[in-house]
Design a protein around this nucleic acid. Structure first.
Lengths: 230, 230
DNA sequence: TGATGTCTGTTATCTACAAAACAAATTTAC
DNA sequence: GTAAATTTGTTTTGTAGATAACAGACATCA
């Protein structure tokens, strides 16, 4: 069901942007398609961001750096998601998160004003954006809930399963993640300390629930699901 | 700045809905204005909700009940906020939160289909909704961050200050909250256990940072701000 | 006027995790 | 090819906060 919705989303995007890019750029001159390598920042915490970003392909990490110096990963965005500051950017709106690419990313960048105009002329698109924002909020709320109720073990499993769904490719034992993540990055994603995540991962490895090397994680999704008991 | 934005919001709403309600109801027959007393449920976790709710006045609590039986308060909505399920409700979308009124609430209820149509005909409104959803997501993200980084003490303070901003009325020492909240409700809002919140509140009372009786909380906002050191 | 139910205050116990620290294994850089 | 930097594995220690349990305070309703 998820994937059906997602296909519908990306279809809309493709049709809309790719069908007639020239005309679009005439109407909304700020639109540009941009291709960037991994680790690129779309915007940084503290910026005054006056653009919106529509992801065409790849994964973008949204994170926040706390005063204590620890990083929290808020969400991962993929094809079809829109991000940036939707508020009246005339005022001094400092954005409170950093958007950084994991892997290569392709996106459309649109200035706030053009984006807003686009939304008002293209009803389809506006609704699409509303749905996307709803989905994103739901993801954050789910994260909040698991952090408040589940122990780190379970959160690690959840995170891995989500990752597998987002960019896993099938392999013999389950899914292999296409993207390289350090233990620290996984920990930030889980919202836990690196050391605990490390021991948990080892524990899971010993039990045969997953396997990993320095630059690849392979997940036995069935075993992980079992562990949570559903 | 917050309040300016908020005023602009409610102005739009007033103009839109109240100016010509009759015409609106012709175009979108499902629209109804509803008035409910406190503790009413707009929808419950697990429902298949096919309506959207536009709050005209009052406060609505969004919460989630975990399997372990504890309640988590996700957010508080006030005038101008929109809630409900924005996803294709043809499919079996179980909603994962409960919306319950605190105090008396006045709202417009609109069926999914009509709402979607309305968004596509009224560009102003669609943008308004997008902004509202953005603001809501930011609130949830902020909550996530404070839970991950701040001790319960600080979270209690943050929560109280937010409450004061939402529905406090000025009094001699700072703000008095107009709404009755039990300690358990405060704890759910903070994301902590009731007993810890209780002792913290007492501690703060002894220090003169706030005062409260069974059915009223009075906050010395200056002192609370000081405590966090900013 | 009890009698029952909901709310508050406090304390004692227990545990999940963060923090710090360090050695081994790899990778990157020069 | 060696030095420096990063990543991993593990252990030790400290503590914030959950949980449970209970008594006192109020409220509600026969």
């Amino acid at each position: 069901m998820q994937s059906i919705a997602h296909d519908a989303k990306s279809k809309l995007i493709r049709e809309f942007f790719e069908r007639d890019m020239n005309q679009l750029q005439k109407d909304y001159p700020s639109i540009v398609e941009i291709n960037v390598p991994k680790k690129t920042f779309l915007y940084r915490q503290g910026d005054y961001c006056s653009n919106l970003f529509w992801i065409k392909s790849g994964i973008v990490k949204l994170s926040h750096l706390t005063e204590q110096g620890s990083e929290i990963t808020i969400d991962l965005l993929k094809r079809g998601d829109v991000t940036g500051c939707f508020q009246n950017n005339s005022a001094d709106q400092e954005i409170d998160e950093t958007a950084q690419t994991l892997g290569e990313v392709n996106y459309y960048r649109i200035a706030y004003g053009d984006f807003k105009a686009m939304m008002s002329h293209q009803a389809e698109l506006a609704w699409y954006v509303i749905e996307d924002m709803y989905a994103r909020r739901q993801r954050v709320e789910r994260k909040l809930r698991t952090i408040l109720t589940q122990p780190v073990e379970v959160r690690v499993i959840n995170t891995l399963l989500e990752l597998a769904e987002m960019f896993g490719i099938r392999c013999t034992h389950g899914y292999t993640l296409e993207i390289h993540l350090t233990q620290q990055e996984v920990a930030d994603l889980v919202g836990a300390s690196r050391s605990v995540v490390s021991t948990i991962l080892n524990d899971f490895r010993n039990r045969g629930m997953l396997d990993y090397t320095r630059d690849q994680i392979c997940i036995n999704d069935a075993a992980l699901h079992d562990f949570c008991g559903f």
